[in-house]
Design a protein around this nucleic acid. Structure first.
Lengths: 125, 125
DNA sequence: TGTACATATGAACATATTATCATATAACGA
DNA sequence: TCGTTATATGATAATATGTTCATATGTACA
């Protein structure tokens, strides 16, 4: 089973690394969220991890825009922009309404601007 | 099929769609930051776009921990954790102090917890 | 109708990311 | 010194990502 060492704590057997600060580990582990939550969270943050999407979000923070407006503003292809809008939609960061031939996009979530602001604060320090 | 521009030859491959809302485009474009800032920003946000790193940040939000504590808490290899800590260090999200053989890691930036909180709010809605 | 316009999307390719493996470094005790 | 422990890191392979190309869908208007 386990090797027991009263001075330095239990050895975990399968893991070859000694547990050094068991109390701290337990407190920290209690704060961990569900695996599913972390996957969801990471997928959402991943959307902020790309310059093109950050630019789109910046634009939409100022003005609701249709797809071709965004293409024009960023000098990017319609396809590239449309694909990115799709991924942003999938995680509820943007929404759109159909207006005739056009699709008018806007931010879907108040958190988007908050996250952008804090991120900018961080990198500008 | 592709439109051809007889004055300037083939278009630049960017966007041959007509400008629909020029005023809006100009206002939105004014809000855009430097390209370099977006690259920096995206690299920082990218760090939040991975479940392992999110877990590490959660742990460090509660307790300063050494590398093997984190390995233990996440049941992950020392190498994987160490690599992720390196990337987190590179963007100033965590810092560490050497204590003998160990390296005690902690959050380096107050923004980390704020960003985590807002992200969690978003996904839990 | 037919045609141009606005957007969406599947496939494919190049690049980026992440965990693993093997190994290096560095501190400590015997 | 040697051996053990704690951490760091280069190389690699599997997977994910982002743009382009080609094409599909849907709308408006002559």
């Amino acid at each position: 089973m386990k090797n027991r060492n009263f001075l330095f704590g239990d050895d975990e057997g399968t893991c070859d690394i000694k547990v050094i600060h068991e109390e701290s580990i337990n407190r920290a582990k209690d704060a961990l969220l569900d695996e599913d939550t972390y996957v969801e969270l990471s997928e959402t943050f991943k959307l902020f991890g790309n310059p093109t999407r950050l630019k789109i979000l910046t634009l939409l923070a100022v003005e609701d825009l249709c797809v071709c407006d965004i293409c024009e503003a960023l000098a990017m292809s319609q396809s590239a922009v449309s694909h990115q809008l799709k991924t942003l939609r999938a995680k509820n960061l943007v929404k759109y309404t159909k207006e005739g031939k056009q699709a008018r996009y806007s931010l879907a979530d108040k958190h988007v601007i908050e996250i952008l602001k804090i991120g900018i604060e961080h990198v500008l320090e």
